[in-house]
Structures are given as C-alpha cells and as structure tokens.
Design a protein around this nucleic acid. Structure first.
Lengths: 134, 134
DNA sequence: TTGCTTGCAAAGGGTTTGCATAGGA
DNA sequence: TCCTATGCAAACCCTTTGCAAGCAA
C-alpha cells in the first residue's frame, strides 16, 4: 500500500483505536498535540483520510461532521441529539434491507447505514435536573 | 406560528415541493433566482430552516450536506455514491428497530434514519460507457 | 406604525490544498 | 538519494449572522 511509517500517523491511528467514541478530526488533533505538540490539524486530516482510504479505519458522516471509526465490521450507530456523541449500536445488521432496496429501485446497491437518535444517559440526567428548576 | 407571508418564502416552498429530489439549498437558490433575480442565498437558507423548524418541510443531512424534503411521512432514503442524488426509498419503516435499540442501550430513543447507498441508473450507464473505452 | 423579512457583506465552522522543508526507506 | 509526509498558511465549501432598508399586517 506504499504507506511510509511516520510518528504522526502512528499517533493518529492509536488515538482512533483508543476509544469507542467515533472521534472527530478535531478531537484527534487535540489529543495528538499532547504527544506531538507541533502536529498540525492538516496532518491529522490527511492521515485520517489516508487511513480510511486504505481501509484501516472508517469514516462516518454524522450530523454533517466527519467521525472516524476503528470498528470495521458492519454495524449501526446511535447519536445523541443533544451532545452529538456517536456510539455503536449492538444490533444485528438487517440483510434483507438491501435486497428490498434493490427490488424497489433501479440502483445498484452497495451498502446501507442506520443511525438511531435519542438522548444519551448523560443528557437525560442533565435534562431531568434542569426541569426540576422550572 | 407567526410566520408572515413573503414572496421569497412562497417560492422557496414551491420549489422544494416541485421535486422529489431532496434539493440542496444551493439548488433552491439557483432555481429561485430565475423567478426572483435579487433573492439572496441567505434568504433561501433562512426560509428553508424556518420552514423546517415549523414542520412544513424536513431537513435531512446527506453526505455532509443539508437537503430538504417535502415528504413529511417517515421513510428511508437512497443516495447515489457517485452523483450524490438523494431519493426516497419506498420501503416500510422498521418499527422494531427502535425498541431493539432502546433495549440494547441506555438512550431515550427518538427516531432513526436509514440511508441505502448505491449507483443510480444514470451513473450506472455512465460507468458502463467509460469501461468500454478502457 | 410595528416588527418580521430581506439583501448584502462579512464571519464562521469544518475541511482541503499549495508549497517549501523534514525525514523514512 | 528519492520521494512521501509534514507544518504552515491560505483557500475552500457550506452555512450563519449583523445590520440597515424593505415590506406585510
């Protein structure tokens, strides 16, 4: 794959793999600077994109922002509408959806994504607390 | 709902309702200018957002861009990975997904979205044509 | 008249790119 | 050495905002 090794790329990959939180580029950048204070946001973006292009990680679009996922298996996501947190949804992927979509349209089907949205536990308790003050 | 009438808003709404194509703000802007040459992109955005906030249309995020949908019923979408076209997917919505997600997580579930991706008929034939020339 | 709506221009957030330098193989 | 990867700054795209003027109620 002709990808040379670099300290920056190693750190970016380690960071994406360090969390289940599907981090944004900016989160990876902030964390990376703690180890490589001179790393630039452009380098973080280039490495995230490159790693995704090589299939080492996966890029997911959520609420209009790119997030990066080290879990390469097919799975669904759940997003908190309040804080934006994106998590894995441990459900089995619906295999029939794609054949149904193929029959229902003239598209050549390549895949599908499911994003459930709701309030994460933290934002639920934050909400409950603020309601008590009204 | 305290929404005053305006020619600009009428045109924006008419345009979103004129197509099943889930247009972007920029598409609406280009079309609107044919009828109101002095309309600004900011006005188009303000009206699209306002109409979505009032529940007259719906905003959908697709491939990192906002698109606007006059179909208020719950339904799934299909996106062409090549040209970005977003269409409706005429499949019944999976009601069990949300209860399963509720059981599998500690989120308070509010809804879910499904986007199937593939190649639309136009991009398929474009692809086939270009392969013949190789 | 009142105050919502507009056009314009500028700013904003996230992401990408040009370029000279640094640094793996 | 050769060529990829980097840091920096500027550019880019999409979207939002401040403001004075316009216009519906």
């Amino acid at each position: 794959m002709s990808m040379r090794q670099s300290r920056q790329r190693d750190v970016v990959l380690e960071l994406v793999r360090s969390t289940m939180d599907h981090p944004t580029a900016n989160w990876v950048y902030r964390q990376a600077r703690r180890r490589l204070p001179r790393i630039s946001l452009a380098t973080v973006y280039r490495n995230l994109k490159r790693l995704a292009a090589e299939g080492v990680i996966r890029e997911v679009q959520s609420a209009g922002q790119a997030r990066f996922d080290c879990n390469l298996g097919r799975h669904y996501h759940i997003r908190c509408v309040s804080c934006g947190r994106l998590g894995d949804l441990p459900l089995s992927v619906d295999a029939r959806l794609e054949e149904q979509a193929g029959r229902a349209t003239s598209y050549r089907i390549l895949g599908h994504e499911v994003e459930v949205h709701g309030l994460c536990p933290l934002c639920q308790s934050r909400d409950d607390a603020s309601h008590q003050n009204q």
